[in-house]
């Protein structure tokens, strides 16, 4: 599978951007459907944070690439195999417990990722990471507080939260598996090797699961492929919705 960009640094930033775009889109699918008005606004805020991070990451990737593509081209003109997000973020929203547990897993991975990336040797990338780390720390807090209340809530909310955790846990290993691209950008001081983040993730999640009275699922080999462009059937549906306007009316402007 060729890189998503000829420049490895751009390809790596695009991969981060793909993850936040797809998860951000998933969050926007909750709009007007959240359990309460307060949570509807909260989920929209989380989605907007992620889409804002995507724009910054894509824009920097395009600058580094220097090939004339812009962030809209990346978001709206690429097909599934060109997207390199981990499989976790394209999984369906399910019930509220699924969405919150998915967000807990992602935020517990992305918070230390952006904290480390804030010392990237690329000042622009470091700046994006500093802002993103702050946002993801709040995402982690929000998802953690909900996971605790669902897990330590009623028998039904506990059962749903445990099911969500068990169903999503197979998507955890992919987040932390370093491939050649990860190792390449980490070695040059530009990026972060995700395998170095697992300790922070485990510590953050263990504390939440203990308070939530949820059992940590057994470690499994897991599902992987998204980072290499091999996706679940869900991504095609997401892109169909996300890209329909630009596909039907290329270069349409507001």
């Amino acid at each position: 599978m060729p890189l998503a960009s000829p420049d490895p640094r751009a390809a790596w930033l695009m991969r981060l951007g793909d993850a936040s775009l797809i998860l951000g889109h998933r969050m926007t699918q909750w709009l007007s459907r959240a359990p309460t008005l307060e949570e509807d606004i909260a989920l929209a805020n989380l989605g907007l944070d992620l889409i804002g991070q995507t724009r910054a990451l894509y824009a920097r990737a395009c600058e580094i690439e220097g090939g004339g593509r812009d962030e809209n081209a990346l978001a709206y003109r690429r097909a599934e195999p060109e997207y390199r997000n981990p499989l976790l973020v394209e999984q369906p929203n399910g019930d509220f417990a699924v969405t919150m547990v998915r967000h807990l897993i992602f935020a517990a991975y992305a918070t230390p990722l952006y904290e480390r990336l804030s010392s990237s040797n690329d000042a622009e990338t470091a700046g994006i990471a500093t802002r993103s780390a702050r946002e993801m720390a709040y995402h982690l807090r929000h998802a953690a507080e909900w996971t605790i209340r669902l897990g330590d809530g009623t028998p039904e909310s506990h059962a749903r939260a445990q099911t969500a955790l068990d169903d999503l846990w197979p998507y955890v290993p992919e987040l932390f598996e370093a491939d050649d691209l990860d190792r390449d950008v980490a070695a040059s001081g530009f990026g972060v090797d995700p395998s170095t983040l697992r300790g922070d993730f485990d510590a953050a999640v263990a504390g939440v699961l203990a308070r939530a009275t949820l059992a940590k699922p057994a470690e499994v080999r897991g599902q992987r492929g998204g980072k290499a462009g091999r996706h679940s059937e869900h991504l095609g549906h997401i892109l169909a919705e996300l890209q329909v306007l630009q596909r039907a009316y290329p270069d349409a402007q507001w």
Binding site: L37, E38, I41, E145
Partner: peptide
Amino acid sequence: AHDAQMALQAARDV
């Protein structure tokens, strides 16, 4: 909100 901590988060968001 369910409790004080969740109310604080909701207030931040709203």
